[in-house]
Design a binder for these strands. Structure first.
Lengths: 343, 343
DNA sequence: CTGAAAGCGCTAACAG
DNA sequence: CTGTTAGCGCTTTCAG
């Protein structure tokens, strides 16, 4: 008899609560109670049930249980894509806190896919609540979700309807960062990123303007750019070929800054002497770049954790009043801004 | 009337198929058929159903549907943690391919948590199949899963039982990489990483040994290290303080290599002149390090995609014979190995 | 082409 | 302390 034929091709049917009950000589209600340590069960009865459970290798069917109880014990998180350390860190924080609460987590990447709205709506039907990243879906979807009373927390996105929100502080840090550059004495400071592309960048752009205004300087317009390294390199190349080339540039995130570094290297420009550069996020690689990158650290894990906690609270308490949290960020001065390393 | 009191605190009960049926004056079977475009429904009837669906804003309950059909339309992926670009890229590939097949994906991070075995078993009950990353759970769990006939694909882990597996080529590339270093004429080449800690590193270590043997050299023992940058820095510090300090080092991944760069900088060693360094993975930051890192590129997205495809195939076709795939890797020569950049 | 009815596997009153 | 009995919401024969 060959190994292949000694097993059934179809997945073996699992034992049900009825079989366990029969095997133990009790009712299914008793099995259910014993299984969940709910209600009271006589020690002797419990022992019989436990034995039957073991012998039949019984595990309750999650679908049956969830249907009967009316909830999934799962939450979903929707993000634009997973490239870069930012999203993965936030998701890790979310997963961590969710697992601690006994919740499963479903993930969905929209990466600009059309029709992702339907996927998000579908995800809502498979979970008890959702966290939505900034630029994943339009307001129409958020509204529909709100209408369906889906517990919602918006991440790095201004609140909407009754949803909770959690984000990191942007404007003040951007102001401080830009101010730091100004103090270095740079003649012209550029901004690379898309203020309209994400609420976070919009705020950073505002802070950048605040600093300029504070010292009575004109605010140069932004060089619109996506979030990837290649986008940054492209934007920098354009910026550096301008007649009136800036001698400093604040980038909407670290990856863009890496692209700027690359473009500067290609243009034989020295950082920070010919061009100062700053990033945002403080990704792990930031301190290992040449030169080490001055940036702003975001509490990415905490962003995810808090989102999970708010969501869970909202689901289990049926809380309605929205809650909004703003987590602090931290300026990290290294040498790409013109400072000399202390080490 | 205040806004707060104008809404019910509890989540509104969704319309069921019964209400739609009554509303449309048909039976639930007809609603079900119309809803799923299954069987034949008269155009007029379908129109009535569609209208009722729209009016009641009906969406079928996933739990009810799944229970009746006997499957989840979801798969799970288990990884040790999400730090670093490697896991997140593989997961992104997995999510992408899964979404394309209409499957939801549940994630679970074990990060060395004890009791993660039970979480994995539980995940299996919520999905139609699982992909397990290399070092997430012990063989006992894999065996239990196998016994339960859970469709399984092992990622970067040697096959076990009837599970499928997908991984990237390691040994030959490690041999080629080490050989390249040997050709540079380095006197002593170290290895940082834990060959026993993961199958991938084990293979890389073997390839490293192959190259040494091929030129009739002794193979130095590995400096055991974890996968993070801090681990690499620690290992490098130890290595560099040895009397017989190596003049080249192959690292088990790029993050370790970043740590080595950091330690070398602290020790005022010049890379690659005083110490050549290579990594593995070709993470996005690798090309932006100082100096740009020589490494081996892995098809991380494809690893995830193939895992999703194999899993889906196994689930839907009830295939039993295990399938094993080895994806090619590519040597990426930059300058940390001693080569001069072509640019 | 449509409807009745039997599940899918479990939970939770409600009796006893 | 335990069992009976309705559901939970949907799919799917099987008749008609």
């Amino acid at each position: 008899m060959k190994a292949l034929t000694s097993r059934s091709a179809r997945r073996r049917r699992d034992a049900t609560i009825y079989e366990v009950a029969r095997h133990a000589g009790v009712s299914i209600a008793t099995v259910s109670r014993a299984q969940r340590n709910a209600g009271v069960v006589a020690p002797a009865t419990r022992a019989r049930v436990d034995q039957a459970v073991a012998e039949l290798n019984y595990r309750p069917n999650r679908l049956g249980r969830s249907l009967a109880r009316g909830h999934h014990d799962a939450t979903g998180i929707v993000f634009p894509d997973l490239s870069g350390p930012y999203y993965s860190s936030v998701i890790l924080g979310f997963e961590d806190a969710s697992a601690a609460e006994g919740q499963s987590v479903l993930i969905l990447a929209t990466h600009g896919r059309r029709g992702s709205g339907d996927l998000v709506l579908d995800l809502a039907d498979r979970t008890d609540g959702l966290v939505l990243f900034g630029q994943t879906v339009g307001d129409d979807i958020v509204e529909e979700l709100d209408r369906r009373r889906v517990p919602l927390v918006l991440l790095a996105r201004p609140t909407h309807g009754e949803a909770d929100s959690v984000g990191a502080e942007n404007r003040a840090s951007a102001r401080a960062l830009t101010f730091h550059l100004l103090e270095h004495g740079y003649r012209q400071i550029g901004f690379i990123g898309d203020p309209d592309g994400s609420p976070d960048v919009g705020e950073r752009w505002l802070g950048y303007g605040d600093a300029h205004r504070a010292v009575g300087r004109e605010t140069p317009g932004p060089v619109v750019s996506g979030f990837r390294t290649a986008d940054g390199a492209r934007a920098a190349t354009a910026l550096l070929s301008q007649a009136d080339r800036p001698d400093a540039v604040v980038c909407a995130n670290d990856e863009i800054a890496m692209g700027v570094l690359e473009a500067a290297r290609a243009a034989r420009l020295s950082i920070p002497d010919d061009l100062a550069v700053t990033g945002w996020d403080d990704i792990p690689a930031a301190r290992h770049l040449a030169p080490p990158l001055t940036t702003v650290r975001q509490p990415m894990l905490d962003l995810g954790r808090r989102a999970a906690e708010l969501l869970r609270d909202r689901i289990s308490t049926h809380r309605i009043e929205p809650r909004h949290e703003l987590l602090p960020t931290e300026l990290v001065i290294r040498s790409s801004c013109g400072c000399t390393p202390s080490t």
